[in-house]
Simulated assay, not measured.
Amino acid sequence: MKNKIAYIGCLSLIGMITTEFGVIGILPQLAEYYQISIDKAGLLLSAYAMVVALAGPLMTMFASGFNRKHLMALTMVIFLITGIVSSMAPPFWLLMTVRVLPAFLHPVLVSTAVAAATSTADQKDAHKMMAIVIGGISIATITTVPFAAYIAGVFNHWQSSFMVQAVISLIVLLSIIFLLPSMPGGERKSYRSQISILKKPAFIASSLFAFFMIGSIFSTYSYFAGYLSKVNGMDEKTISLMLLLFGLTGVLGNFIAGKLLSRNITRITAVFLIGLIAVSVPLYFSGPMSARTVLLIAVWGFLQTPCFLTSQAYMIETAPEAPEFANSISISFGNLGISIGTAIGGLSIATYGIHSTPWIMFGFGIAALVMMLIKKMMEAP
């Protein structure tokens, strides 16, 4: 039963991530269609992430006592509506509006899925169950996100990408309704008992770490398609294949990270972060497409994808007394990182060109590493 719940949670995150990150592969087409710059098109990702960051903790606290199955189903209904409306090529303001609506329940879905999977598992298996659920992020990057981009490229019709997102949301919704058992939320914890973790300096440090780490990722990854097109000279179909390769190696990295986290969360988190910092340098010098570029993208995916899992585990470890709220704070700071990282990456593109984004990635990564060192000093006896 515990594995079944974890795998349905994983499927839910696949539907969620397909909607949130699905625009990454079609940003150039969206910019062209709406006659806007690519950094402005990037608002479709950064605005979504900002809503998650601001609404996440409050929504999670409010929803903590509700039936988890009902919450997950309601969230997927809203994702389904978003995909349908977006596929109709509405005015940009309406596209932006329907994009941010599901963001209000995004953190509730993640926190609920993780809590449902880990609450039924033994303590020694908790990180493995979390890895299965969070694995939905890497699976989406290997399957649904590149597939949506590929379909848009094949039909030369960016709306097709949103149609794919809607179909996936419908499949996830039906899976939740028919396969997930009813899961009452139990006794709702008081707001004061949950908020008390914000008084812990080490937890604040780990939250800032998550912000910088995820900001490092999305300062460049948000413009993945544009970067490979402008810097590496790839066409749309090749870019979708690179997204697939990125996701494949990311699944492997996520699997390895999930296995190793139970040994030493801090050390494994640092290893993947340092690797992410290191890969930004050759990425800047990658140049036209070659075998070396393809290998670099594979390594990039392997190092980057597990960072979602390691950052959450790193934060939750600091607040075991309120894991669901800690998870929502992790999601909020992570999405704040997505929003600010995407925005600064866009500003860098507007000022210095898209080739400059790996250095933003490098800077955010160093800041995250510094926050790890600060947290380590705070915890020293």
Rank of each mutant, 00 (worst) to 15 (best):
G186S: 12
G186C: 13
E187D: 05
R188W: 05
K189Y: 01
R192W: 11
S196W: 13
S196D: 14
L198V: 03
K200S: 10
A202I: 09
F203G: 06
F203N: 12
I204C: 07
I204V: 14
A205E: 01
S206I: 00
S207K: 06
S207D: 08
L208E: 04
L208P: 02
F209S: 02
F209N: 07
F211N: 05
F211G: 00
F212I: 03
I214E: 06
I214C: 07
G215K: 03
G215E: 09
G215M: 06
S216P: 11
I217K: 06
F218V: 11
Y221T: 06
S222F: 13
S222M: 10
F224C: 09
F224D: 07
A225E: 04
A225I: 01
G226C: 10
G226N: 13
Y227R: 07
Y227C: 13
S229V: 05
S229R: 14
V231R: 14
V231S: 14
V231M: 15
N232C: 15
G233H: 11
G233Q: 08
M234D: 14
M234P: 12
M234V: 13
D235K: 11
E236P: 02
E236G: 00
K237S: 15
T238A: 15
S240M: 01
S240V: 00
L241V: 00
M242H: 12
L243V: 07
L244Y: 00
F246W: 08
F246P: 15
G247C: 13
L248A: 11
L248M: 09
T249L: 04
L252P: 03
G253K: 01
N254R: 01
N254A: 09
F255D: 04
I256N: 02
A257I: 02
A257D: 06
A257E: 03
S262M: 02
S262H: 14
S262T: 12
S262V: 06
R263E: 03
R263S: 12
R263Y: 12
R263M: 13
N264V: 01
N264P: 05
N264K: 01
I265Y: 14
I265F: 05
T266Y: 13
T266K: 12
T266I: 04
T266F: 06
R267L: 15
R267G: 09
I268G: 15
I268V: 15
T269S: 10
A270M: 05
V271N: 11
F272W: 12
I274G: 08
I274R: 00
I274Y: 08
G275A: 07
L276F: 10
L276K: 01
V281Y: 02
V281M: 09
P282L: 09
F285Y: 15
S286I: 15
